[in-house]
Design a protein around this nucleic acid. Structure first.
Length: 304
DNA sequence: GGAGTCGGACGTTCAATTAT
DNA sequence: TAATTGAACGTCCGACTCCG
């Protein structure tokens, strides 16, 4: 589908075969919370520099999880692939965060005649179809069509975004582009906030409340891959009020500075200025809690 | 202001159908 | 057998209401 989804396809596992039994590996189980940008929230998108401004407003594709948990499903709210999901964690119902059951698809449903692949339909008057086809071929000469084949507005081409090997072994490296593949455009920044799956011994089968902040071995982190084209310029800043998820108070921009220093606007970069790697927050802290605290400390509690 | 509800737009999946 | 189609099904946005 052309969707460069970094997440492993867990859906098939859920549907066709039960998930593998949890291993006794000492490796802590990290469940990633991919926080994606909403399709309908322009504030989540990078501002376009004048030269790169698209002719028409772009609408980024809405991303969905393969399987929402029962709570999110019931509430019709955004879920994520991790279990417990962020929403359930936030509401303190992590133990109730269970994958919803999918209905089995009906089989044996008769379907009408399909459109012919050459653009002719199977059940439409042939003469009409020929006219349409002729029209289309006249309207756009192949050479021109090829030059404007991409439906995406003019944007600067950037290399496929991926993470350095070893940073997130859970996610495969971005597949190398094959000949004939459409060019990749930097569509939307994605925050990967690894939230720990509750440790088996800490989750408390007995109902003990689990707080992520009490698990210092886990690293709430925000990786922020700014598009190279923007990273060197003034466009790397996110909107101060941008929230990747409508339900979540996400990191204000100052979190890209090394914690715990409050965000200070970096000195203006000249051309060729070195752009450092994305900064991590203090891994010992629960980022989501700290985000709110720091925002309040900086902007004051009245900033609401 | 936050939580709950819900209509409906949009995304995903996969069996049916068609092409090779 | 592979490729394509398109409808069923699922997710979740965003508007609205209710409640403390």
């Amino acid at each position: 589908m052309g969707d460069s989804n970094p997440e492993p396809d867990s859906h098939q596992h859920q549907q066709s075969s039960p998930p593998p039994p949890p291993s006794d590996s000492v490796q802590p189980q990290m469940t990633m919370h991919p926080i994606t940008y909403s399709a309908s929230m322009p504030m989540h998108m990078y501002p376009f520099p004048p030269g790169l401004s698209p002719a028409q407003p772009t609408r980024t594709k809405r991303r969905q999880v393969k399987n929402a948990c029962t709570n999110c499903q019931k509430a019709c709210k955004k879920c994520d692939d991790a279990r417990p999901c962020l929403r359930c964690v936030r509401y303190g119902i992590a133990e109730e965060c269970i994958d919803s059951q999918r209905k089995e698809r009906q089989k044996g449903i008769k379907r009408g005649p399909y459109k012919k692949r050459d653009g002719k339909t199977a059940n439409v008057d042939q003469q009409q179809v020929d006219v349409v086809v002729q029209h289309q071929s006249m309207a756009i000469p192949p050479a021109v069509a090829a030059s404007v084949a991409s439906p995406t507005p003019p944007m600067s081409y950037v290399a496929p975004v991926s993470y350095p090997p070893g940073i997130y072994p859970q996610y495969p490296a971005h597949p190398a582009a094959k000949p004939g593949d459409p060019p990749m455009y930097y569509h939307q920044p994605i925050f990967y906030a690894p939230i720990p799956a509750p440790h088996p011994q800490a989750t408390g089968q007995d109902g003990e409340h689990v707080s992520y902040a009490h698990h210092p071995q886990f690293y709430p982190t925000f990786i922020y891959p700014p598009p190279p084209a923007y990273a060197a310029g003034p466009y790397m800043m996110t909107h101060p009020h941008a929230r990747p998820d409508a339900q979540l108070q996400m990191a204000p921009p100052h979190h890209y500075a090394p914690y715990p220093q409050p965000y200070v606007k970096p000195p203006s970069r000249g051309p060729g200025a070195e752009v450092g790697p994305p900064q991590m927050m203090d891994p010992r802290r629960d980022g989501r809690v700290e985000h709110a605290r720091m925002a309040e400390a900086i902007t004051g509690p009245q900033a609401k």
